[in-house]
């Protein structure tokens, strides 16, 4: 992250503000100015931030406060002010709710599976792309592999269905050759493979960007020196390339761990009915189905709040660990 805020400045810092935090007048003077003078000087800048700050307040911070309904028996007809307070009752129900734990388990399983089978793919892809010497060819391949990132999940899932569904290309080909058809899209047993495959197809190329940047930053002289010392391709990969990638890999790994409760919403929402709840219900979809379809607003808010708080703790812990490794602080994929 570019500039972290005052509260987390203590641990060893690669992330000091990009520009010294001083008051700079028109001529580059550096000195303290009175509030009134600063207002006269900066009112235009302040005015410019009003729309964005306003939107964030209304659609981020007001809902944040709205989480108080997790401690109520909220009814939209009565409103937040007059709904009865129930303390931690919703959370007690949540702890006893088996389907909540099932959703949590599914979420963590998917995260773990993707850590093993998705996470390394962009790294390998980046190393592969980086080894393409001809710039035009490389640009072409890069453009192709980045592209699916910009397709919607509905589109990606639909494409997969056309390839691997019951009426899809794979089944069709199998049937043409006398085998029975195969429907991967509705099989709960292979769901983990399916969602990971989809994620790789959609996002591995895009995910490679950051590793490509890290590769480009490796000093070419290191390769030359290693080669002069008699290191072959494989040893240069091991002793130069991988150490060069290490900081970024460690950082992204830790951040992914901090983000363990987020596996993406739409991908699972779309496929939940086809595959069934047992395999495809994750925390986000749990909140949705339990609330908007049954009207148990407070219960859903409680589940969402638990997820948010645990997620926050995980991110802060991950950030601490990142600092411990001497890496940069928080940055999160949008």
């Amino acid at each position: 992250m570019l500039e972290r805020s005052a509260d987390s400045g203590a641990a060893g810092d690669l992330t000091a503000p990009a520009v010294p935090d001083t008051t700079r007048g028109a001529g580059g003077r550096v000195r303290r100015v009175s509030l009134r003078a600063r207002l006269r000087r900066d009112w235009q800048l302040l005015l410019m931030t009003v729309p964005a700050i306003g939107l964030l307040l209304v659609f981020h911070y007001v809902p944040l406060l709205g989480n108080v309904i997790a401690f109520q028996d909220y009814s939209p007809y009565v409103g937040i002010k007059d709904s009865p307070w129930v303390g931690l009752a919703n959370f007690q129900w949540l702890v006893l709710d088996e389907s909540f734990w099932d959703a949590t388990l599914n979420t963590l399983t998917i995260t773990a599976f993707q850590l093993v089978f998705y996470f390394p793919v962009p790294i390998v892809l980046a190393i592969l792309l980086d080894s393409v010497v001809r710039p035009r060819l490389r640009l072409l391949i890069q453009s192709v592999v980045y592209m699916p990132h910009f397709f919607s999940w509905v589109l990606v899932v639909t494409l997969f269905q056309q390839m691997f569904g019951g009426a899809g290309l794979l089944s069709q080909t199998l049937r043409d050759h006398g085998y029975s058809g195969l429907d991967i899209m509705t099989n709960p047993d292979t769901f983990l493979l399916l969602v990971t495959g989809e994620t790789i197809w959609k996002d591995a190329g895009w995910g490679a960007i950051i590793f490509l940047a890290a590769l480009a930053a490796i000093d070419q002289n290191l390769y030359e020196a290693a080669a002069v010392d008699g290191a072959g391709r494989r040893r240069r990969l091991w002793h130069v390339t991988l150490p060069g990638l290490r900081p970024v890999v460690v950082l992204l790994l830790i951040l992914r761990l901090g983000d363990a409760l987020n596996v993406g919403f739409e991908q699972f929402f779309i496929q939940r009915d086809a595959v069934g709840r047992d395999a495809a219900e994750v925390l986000d979809t749990f909140v949705y189905w339990r609330t908007l379809l049954t009207g148990e607003w407070s219960y859903g808010a409680a589940a969402g709040l638990v997820k948010g708080v645990v997620g926050l703790i995980l991110i802060l812990v991950a950030n601490k660990v990142a600092h411990r490794f001497g890496e940069q602080g928080i940055y999160k994929r949008s």
């Binding site: 805020s5 520009v19 207002l39 944040l64 989480n67």
Partner: peptide
């Protein structure tokens, strides 16, 4: 940097990275 309210406003923006407001309260708003 250094303009009036620069730090608190930036903080307000960056804080949204850390904590999503949650589906239900957002829907209610």
């Amino acid at each position: 940097p250094g303009s009036l309210l620069h730090r608190p406003l930036l903080f307000l923006v960056l804080l949204t990275f850390l904590f999503g407001p949650g589906l239900i309260p957002k829907y209610l708003v």
